[in-house]
């Protein structure tokens, strides 16, 4: 069995051009759900640049899915060279559970290793029939809210924290925030496991009055899935979402493409990539691209996980781990 498996493994894992690794390099980028279009555009550009600089062809393979599923796959041995996930906690888990990268990974690249940021906005049906203007409107009776499951979706965790941050600011106590979020989830009819599943539910199945979504997903849905069928509503407070990227040193070094992996991530910070990032509705971080796409992004009052919740480790433990606030809310409302 093992012999057969080895043979198959070697023919599936790529170095089958016979010319050795110098001629053609491979890179595996394990990412979260909504980045499909972004990396589909970035990868060929980077490959062309790398070819021009080193003469080497590079084939970049993508894997997409809910952030938790993706990180779990990497922990279980999915041989990623780089990960580009929805939030730092999932990469922290990879660092803690494997020897692929060191705990200090987030300091290695600029802006907390996040070459783009985003936030959470509301996507509503055209004309906003339910008159949804801010977070308070989401807990009104009869309003159906679509969000993925925070246990498995990175985007949903940002949703949850944005809602909590709003309620905390407005009502001033943890108890009130918990009360608000409890009411919010009482209005949720479907919990998909990933951001993409939720968008499909909202857009394609016609379920719900408002979708809590990544800003980039909301734009994509509005511009590409149904022109004129949806409006974006920007709440008074939202959260600064920083989807981080990291090279998995252990894997990349073993594959002999550490430099390639590092160059790939650094490329995300170049003007060329920043422009693609803005075009795909992510908020770029370079001043030039930021200026160019400023009109596209509404001004939002953004809080951060670090200021508001003491970082992702603390937030994850308090809200999303088993027995955390999210579980308590569900245990109370649904039983």
């Amino acid at each position: 069995m093992v012999v057969a498996a080895t043979g198959l493994a070697s023919c599936s894992s790529g170095s089958d051009d016979g010319g050795g690794a110098v001629q053609k390099a491979e890179l595996l980028n394990v990412s979260y759900d909504p980045t499909r279009e972004l990396y589909a555009e970035i990868n060929p550009k980077f490959a062309a640049k790398w070819k021009a600089e080193t003469g080497q062809d590079v084939k970049i393979t993508m894997s997409h899915g809910g952030a938790g599923k993706q990180a779990r796959a990497v922990i279980d041995g999915l041989d990623a060279d780089v990960v580009t996930l929805a939030l730092a906690y999932d990469i922290d888990e990879i660092a803690a559970r494997t020897d692929a990268l060191s705990p200090g990974w987030q300091k290695r690249l600029a802006n907390n290793s996040s070459p783009y940021t985003s936030t959470i906005v509301f996507l509503v049906r055209a004309g906003n029939p339910k008159g949804i203007k801010d977070w308070d409107d989401l807990i009104k009776p009869g309003v159906k809210v679509i969000t993925p499951n925070p246990k498995t979706s990175g985007g949903a965790r940002w949703n949850f924290l944005a809602a909590w941050a709003y309620a905390l600011k407005k009502y001033g106590s943890d108890a009130a925030a918990r009360d608000y979020v409890t009411k919010l989830f009482a209005n949720v009819p479907v919990l998909d496991s990933g951001a993409r599943g939720s968008t499909t539910t909202f857009v394609e199945r016609g379920i719900g009055d408002v979708l809590l979504a990544w800003e980039n997903e909301a734009f994509l849905a509005q511009k590409e899935l149904g022109k004129g069928k949806f409006d974006i509503v920007v709440p008074s407070i939202s959260i600064l979402a920083e989807p981080p990227v990291a090279v998995l040193d252990g894997n990349a070094k073993r594959h002999g493409n550490f430099q390639l992996a590092e160059a790939y991530l650094k490329y995300l910070y170049t003007p060329e990539a920043q422009d693609i990032i803005g075009k795909n509705y992510y908020r770029p971080i370079s001043p030039e691209a930021e200026a160019k796409y400023a009109s596209q992004f509404p001004k939002v009052n953004l809080v951060t996980v670090d200021d508001e919740f003491g970082g992702w480790q603390a937030a994850q433990k308090r809200f999303f781990n088993d027995g955390g606030v999210f579980d308590e809310i569900f245990a109370k409302t649904k039983r």
Binding site: V2, A5, L8, A9, A73, I75, D76
Partner: peptide
Amino acid sequence: YVLLFGAQGWLGPWLRAHDIEIIFAVP
């Protein structure tokens, strides 16, 4: 099969040391 062959599984470290891919590959 994840419990058996995954990187955190019983045979995972051995498979990795010998560069054999089972999980997340065709086998």
